[in-house]
């Protein structure tokens, strides 16, 4: 399981600081705001749920 972390480019660049709850919370909140601002209301179903 540790291999997952060391091979993930995100963690390799930014380190394990990303795992801190404050950092984690900030990123989730930021992405949530981006989704609200730039998300689209046009099409919500996943293509592959048709298969």
């Amino acid at each position: 399981m540790a291999d997952v972390l060391s091979s993930d480019p995100f963690f390799r660049v930014f380190g394990r600081r990303l795992a801190h709850p404050c950092v984690l919370g900030f990123v989730i909140a930021l992405v949530a705001v981006l989704i609200i601002v730039f998300g689209s209301s046009s099409d919500s179903h996943f293509i592959y749920t048709d298969f």
């Binding site: 997952v4 972390l5 394990r16």
Partner: peptide, 11 residues
């Protein structure tokens, strides 16, 4: 740390 990775992934 892995939980964080998974949460990032979901986000």
């Amino acid at each position: 740390e892995e939980i964080a990775l998974h949460l990032y992934r979901i986000t």
